[in-house]
Design a protein around this nucleic acid. Structure first.
Length: 393
RNA sequence: GGUCUCGUGGCCGAGCGGCUAGGCACCGGUCUGCAAAACCGACUACAGCGGUUCGAAUCCGCUCGAGACCUCCA
């Protein structure tokens, strides 16, 4: 354990997390409240629950009265658990004798001797129970009823279930319209876990610092890879799957610049509306990003046909497709498209090198041109001879 | 032990009663000095065994396998 103050630990890992959010192009939250800065709000919610008759005080601790709650509300509505079935499933835990009923949970816990942080409350010194902070903070900043509450699958029960109970008993309603639970991550078919040693940190995989994979993958590729699975499904990280995602990602991004160069026509044989509608309907169906991506690849195919002049489109269609495709790639999927040649200094150098190679090629000096190509390949740069120009990456 | 979820082609991964996604790999072709890249085409799977149905990857049952959760850590 690191020898630090509690706040020091919070600060350190928070800075780290913010950096991670930036690299992975996650939208920054407008507010990131902390539980310790909202003790008063938590106390107020507990008081509300008590005065509504759904909690009781005992020995300086406050417990939620689940039995009473069940008379008026449906406990287990989210997770589908039945309290009478739960009783014999419950594991034996320490210090539970205070509770009147096994399913009761702490709203406020009296301070113990080894507690590092203690707060004052109407019930004496102590600290808040482990569900109440979410109720207090979400209510304060989002109101008593908001659209979406997210979280990992593992928090569904009891944490989210108890949040609902707290909101219903204090404010009279379920806090969220929709509960979204993200599933777990696997590595090579196994769950990612510390004890199995098959885990990696988000920073490590983009730095190529995990022994699990031979090479580094860009944050964009990781994002794209994860978007290919539905958020409710488990996702398996394997080398083959990541490499496949990388290829597909590059093809998708390439199509944007390809579309840029498409020449337009008076008439359109491209059904832009149908294509664009398919993007929206995929996301409207419970954020089905895998379907969205499949539909984006349908657009890629159409763009290739346009590029080859096999189908036509009007300027209006082209602009519409460009805006929508770009919007879905950049704003919806959150891809950045900046992974290739991030070092600006390299560009003029590569222009020169490829120019020299082109000179050699036009003189049919294959040994020189191949020497340049092989040398670049050894440096990790791939040369791609197109019909009109040579590109690299 | 209990509750729940999942098992899809070489790999990843959607679909969740009929129209049998998508990506990558493989194979065939176009292009190319060669190679690569790019593009086009082909590739028809749903753990097993029963059942329901005109029809099942999709519903039901059982078996096998994987996973999540089961209340004072958030």
């Amino acid at each position: 354990m690191e020898q630090m103050q509690p706040l020091e630990i919070v600060y350190k890992y928070n800075l780290n997390f913010i950096e991670l959010q930036r690299i992975y192009n996650l939208l920054m939250p407008s507010i990131e409240p902390t539980a310790t800065a909202h003790i008063q709000e938590q106390i107020e919610i507990i008081e509300q629950i008590i005065s509504n008759g759904y909690a009781y005080l005992i020995n300086g601790s406050v417990y939620f009265d689940t039995k009473k709650y069940m008379q008026d509300f449906d406990y287990g509505i989210l997770s589908g658990r039945k309290v009478d079935e739960l009783e014999n499933e419950t594991r034996v835990l320490n210090a539970q004798e205070e509770k009147r009923f096994f399913a009761d949970f702490a709203l406020w816990k009296k301070a113990g001797d080894d507690d590092m942080q203690i707060w004052r409350s109407p019930w004496g010194n102590g600290n808040p129970g482990w569900h109440i902070e979410c109720t207090a903070m979400s209510t304060k900043y989002l109101g008593k009823h908001f659209d979406i509450h997210g979280g990992g699958m593992d928090l569904k029960f009891p944490h989210h279930e108890d949040e609902i109970a707290q909101s219903c008993s204090s404010l009279g309603c379920n806090p969220a319209k929709y509960w979204m639970h993200a599933n777990m991550l696997n590595v090579n078919g196994q769950k990612m876990s510390k004890s199995l040693g098959n885990f990696f940190l988000p920073m490590e995989i983009i730095a190529g610092e995990t022994a699990l994979f031979k090479k580094a993958y860009s944050a964009d590729v990781i994002r794209f890879f994860m978007m290919q699975a539905h958020y409710r499904s488990t996702l398996d990280f394997t080398e083959d799957a990541l490499n496949a995602a990388e290829k597909g990602y590059e093809r998708l991004m390439e199509s944007l610049s390809l579309l840029e160069n498409v020449s337009c026509n008076d008439s359109s044989s491209l059904d832009t509306k149908k294509l664009v509608d398919s993007f929206y309907s995929a996301m409207n169906d419970d954020f089905n990003a895998p379907i969205l991506i499949a539909n984006l690849f349908e657009a890629v195919k159409q763009i290739n046909l346009l590029t080859e002049g096999k189908i036509t489109c009007t300027i209006l269609d082209k602009e519409e497709l460009k805006n929508q495709l770009g919007g879905f790639i950049y704003n919806v999927l959150g891809l950045q498209g900046n992974t290739i040649n991030s070092d600006g200094k390299l560009n003029p150098v590569m222009d020169l090198v490829l120019d020299l190679r082109q000179d050699a090629r036009s003189k049919k000096d294959w040994s020189t041109s191949d020497k340049i190509r092989d040398g670049l390949a050894a440096a990790g740069i791939e040369v791609k001879d197109g019909n009109n120009e040579t590109t690299w990456r």
